[in-house]
Amino acid sequence: MKRALLALLLSCVAMADIYKHVDAEGRVTYSNVPMKGAKRIDMSGLPGSIPAPRSGGSSSGGSRASANPSPADFPKVDSATQRSRDLNRRQLLQDEMASEQRLLEQARTELSKATPERAAKLRDDMMHSEKNIEMLQKEINRIK
């Protein structure tokens, strides 16, 4: 669920601020909402990135683009640039999925020789990774 936020954030054409938080157990959480101890990720150097729009618009966040047409002065993106952005986004999501799959496999391996206390944490970690993998796969499938 936590990394699902990253996937949802990456689905936007314009990038908003993204924050990375590592908890005491080493779990990484990405969010568009600042939290205590989180670091803002500077994504301005990524290929195809554009500045995030200023908040102040009347977007409700729940509607699709067809329901709320873009203003006339909204930046237009040519298809080659969008294709490049989609490829970059797909690669980022695939890299994140590979990382989650490694974590899941590592937890499965450790589970067989873990103490009962450690086994409970490993099962929790496995469930966390499985959910992340599922959400990442859904987001990858959405990319054209």
Rank of each mutant, 00 (worst) to 15 (best):
Ala67Gln: 14
Val33Ser: 03
Tyr30Pro: 02
Ser112Phe: 01
Ile143Thr: 08
Arg83Gln: 12
Pro47Ile: 14
Leu103Cys: 04
Pro69His: 13
Asn132Ala: 05
Leu92Ala: 14
Pro34Tyr: 11
Arg90Asn: 04
Met15Pro: 01
Leu111Asn: 02
Ala119Leu: 04
Arg85Ile: 14
Met135Val: 08
Met135Pro: 00
Leu9Pro: 06
Met43Asp: 03
Lys144Met: 03
Leu111Thr: 07
Val77Met: 07
Glu25Thr: 11
Ser70Lys: 13
Met43Ser: 03
Ser60Ala: 04
Val33Met: 01
Gln101Lys: 15
Gln101Ala: 13
Glu110Asn: 01
Tyr30Met: 08
Asn132Met: 00
Leu10Gln: 10
Gly37Asp: 04
Ser99Lys: 12
Ala98Phe: 01
Ala4Asp: 13
Ser44Cys: 10
Ile140Ala: 01
Ala14Gln: 04
Glu139Asp: 02
Gly56His: 00
Ser11Leu: 11
Thr81Lys: 15
Asp17Leu: 05
Leu136Glu: 07
Asp17Glu: 11
Asp124Ile: 01
Gln101Cys: 05
Leu92Glu: 11
Arg108Met: 05
Met15Arg: 05
Arg54Val: 11
Ala38His: 06
Ile50Thr: 12
Asp125Tyr: 06
Ser63Asp: 12
Arg3Met: 06
Arg142Met: 13
Gly61Thr: 03
Val33Pro: 02
Leu6Asp: 09
Ser79Arg: 09
Lys113Gly: 09
Gln106Asn: 10
Asp124Cys: 04
Ser60Met: 09
Ser63Cys: 09
Glu110His: 01
Val22Arg: 07
Thr115Ala: 15
Ala52Met: 13
Met35Arg: 07
Leu111Ile: 05
Asp42Gln: 12
Leu9Ile: 11
Ala14Thr: 03
Val28Trp: 07
Ile140Lys: 01
Met43Ile: 09
Ser11Glu: 15
Ser31Pro: 12
Gln82Lys: 10
Arg142Leu: 12
Val33Tyr: 01
Lys113Asn: 10
Ser55Tyr: 03
Gly56Asn: 02
Ala120His: 06
Val13Gly: 14
Gln94Met: 07
Arg40His: 12
Glu100Asn: 12
